[in-house]
């Protein structure tokens, strides 16, 4: 710019400048949200899980037929008065294979009755799964049409719930029970609930 070019003479008062910072602030805030999510993923926080609305509400009623070879199915009325762990599984579910050794260990420890709900499976495949890998379940019910699964708000297998003596859902494990989750979270919770009147 040379001297000969006159500056615009209209020195109209400029408005406040801070509103121009709003988009920047919004961008930074958004970046913060994304960063938090990223760190959540790194720290192993389950972000795809649907938070259960069923915590501290009564377990749904169910009455499920047994697998062939057993005469005891799974009926919610018959399970009251004790703390129990209920596990949704299926022979079609790879993560259930991964979880299975932990369930076997839980059965061996014998601290809590472990009820299995064979979800969206055929009895043959369910039985084959158990005969191949061992049967950790105290009792099993078949849920081929997701009646109990929808009642428990289950979206994916495996999922497990702790139900207390009054039939109230007190804990949900989305995904497989790992040895660490059993030792650090689930077993202590069960012990505490068993101590309740």
């Amino acid at each position: 710019m040379t001297e000969s070019v006159p500056q615009p003479s209209s020195t109209a008062p400029r408005g406040k400048r801070w509103p121009y910072l709003i988009p920047l602030a919004a961008l930074l805030a958004l970046g913060g949200v994304f960063a938090k999510r990223l760190f959540d993923v790194e720290n192993g926080v389950e972000i795809s899980a649907i938070p259960t609305v069923l915590l501290n509400t009564p377990a749904p009623a169910f009455d499920l037929p047994p697998l062939p070879g057993s005469d005891q199915g799974l009926k919610s009325d018959e399970l009251k008065g004790q703390v129990y762990l209920v596990n949704f599984w299926g022979s079609w579910c790879p993560t259930c294979v991964y979880e299975h050794p932990v369930l076997m260990q839980i059965a061996k420890d014998g601290e809590v009755p472990l009820y299995g709900i064979d979800w969206r499976d055929t009895p043959e495949k369910g039985l084959a799964f158990l005969s191949q890998r061992g049967n950790p379940f105290t009792r099993i019910g078949q849920d081929p049409h997701s009646k109990a699964a929808i009642g428990f708000g289950v979206a994916l297998a495996p999922e497990s719930f702790i139900v207390d003596k009054k039939g109230i859902i007190r804990y949900k494990q989305p995904g497989p029970i790992t040895a660490a989750a059993w030792r650090d979270d689930i077993l202590p919770k069960i012990k505490a609930l068993q101590a309740e009147p």
């Binding site: 649907i50 938070p51 259960t52 609305v53 069923l54 509400t57 749904p60 929808i150 009642g151 428990f152 708000g153 979206a155």
Partner: peptide, 9 residues
């Protein structure tokens, strides 16, 4: 009913 099982999702 569905909302009571699965929440807002």
């Amino acid at each position: 009913y569905m909302h009571s099982r699965y929440g807002d999702y």
